[in-house]
Nucleic acid binder design. Structure first.
Lengths: 230, 230
DNA sequence: GCTGGATGTCATAAATCGGTCATACTGCCG
DNA sequence: CGGCAGTATGACCGATTTATGACATCCAGC
């Protein structure tokens, strides 16, 4: 994990408590007391997750959430709503605003941390830096290392991200366009055929430990990472 | 999943909200503010689903729906009506117009997405990417894999689409023309006899696991996929 | 400035597909 | 028992898709 988190919460006590707990869990936390400060911060930095209190002075959390969701720039950032109310109606409303999850006070820090983890995994599984292992092929995001059957493998930055994405999304075909979106980013202007080249480089890099076959071509559709060599 | 959706909704706020949520669910969305724009768009492109607001400036959603239903070209496209009213009378009216489903505001994005899925499943089962299994023959669209009794089967792109269509529309005869429409697309110019060849290729591909018999010839009519080997 | 790795693009080779045709086969009719 | 319409099959070949090797560019670090 180790995500950058923007916490929007007006009550100082709770803010401190959460900051402490999240920092404890290894996250980088920035706190804002209201929507204005949050927006100001967001102009310069894009966090990995936003924790948003339901009730805020001035613009409410709901409105802020809606506003963020309508802005393409912030659209992909997962939002978790913090709320004291537990009514079902509000829950639905919360989801309507585009929030990814909500959590009702009081909640345990443990629960919050695990929800953050879940939301990160759902939105961008390859963002969490938990090690992944499939068929004796290990990839550790935090140390930025890859090894196959104990043997260290060397791959470039792009190949690393590509493999990371594949390993966190196995058994599924992705078109070149999808891979460009997911691995390169949605704002890049790159030929689709470039994906072929990086697939090749990735295969070459995995060759020494015999894991090249995990990267499979699906003609007419794209590529697939699969433990099933069949 | 991953359907092309035409959204006809005049209120910008709701339009944005829906666009965002549908895009989030992996759909491709085109929005139109009124019936005229919708019709204009439909002339060039056929979406997989149409979301239609009940109340529209100019021609109402109901009238647009009726009009679409009377045109053979648009007849097979599923239509979901969006309405703020909850009266039973209106619901019936909505269904009378030929809409496939209706959904009353306010609704959660989750609900909308699942209704779209349901409607697609009903109208065009092969569009959803859920795995299909019949008589030990499995086909998984998302991983783009086919296996018979555990054994992996290899088929080309066209054979894959053909089998997918058959498996989602079993126990029913399809003429060569229908198959060309459904599997190749309506705008292709191909000899009808070509279907025979691909049927053959599909049978060959299914042979290893003994599933070739599921593809049955109906002399004078076309082909049928049937679990009943009789 | 160099230097070396990393990246994107291109040209070309290789693999595979898809449509058509000619021919063989089948079942059904009188 | 033909004859005939419909179907199966094998082969062919151009078109499309993917793999590969080479190359130009860019950039960080020296």
């Amino acid at each position: 994990m180790a995500a950058n988190i923007l916490l929007v919460e007006d009550e100082p006590g709770i803010q401190e408590l959460l900051k402490f707990n999240l920092a404890q869990a290894g996250h980088q936390v920035t706190a804002a007391g209201d929507a204005e400060h949050a927006l100001k911060f967001l102009k310069s930095t894009l966090p990995d997750v936003i924790l948003l209190d339901w009730m805020l002075p001035g613009m409410s959390g709901i409105d802020l959430c809606k506003r963020l969701r309508s802005d393409e720039r912030y659209q992909p950032i997962p939002i978790i709503m913090l709320t004291a109310r537990g009514e079902e109606r509000d829950k639905v409303l919360g989801l309507d605003t585009g929030a990814d999850d909500y959590i009702t006070k009081p909640f345990s820090p443990r629960e919050l941390v695990s929800r953050i983890k879940a939301v990160l995994r759902r939105r961008a599984p390859q963002m969490t830096d938990e090690p992944v292992e499939i068929n004796n092929l290990k990839l550790d995001p935090s140390s930025h290392r890859v090894s196959g059957r104990g043997q260290a493998l060397e791959l470039g930055p792009t190949e690393f991200r590509l493999l990371h994405f594949f390993m966190t999304h196995p058994e599924r075909v992705y078109s070149r366009a999808q891979l460009l979106d997911q691995v390169w980013g949605d704002d890049v202007f790159v030929e689709e055929r470039t994906v072929d080249v990086h697939i090749r480089r990735l295969r070459l890099a995995l060759e020494p430990s015999g894991h090249a076959e995990l990267i499979q071509t699906v003609r007419g559709s794209g590529y697939r990472f699969s433990a099933d060599v069949g």
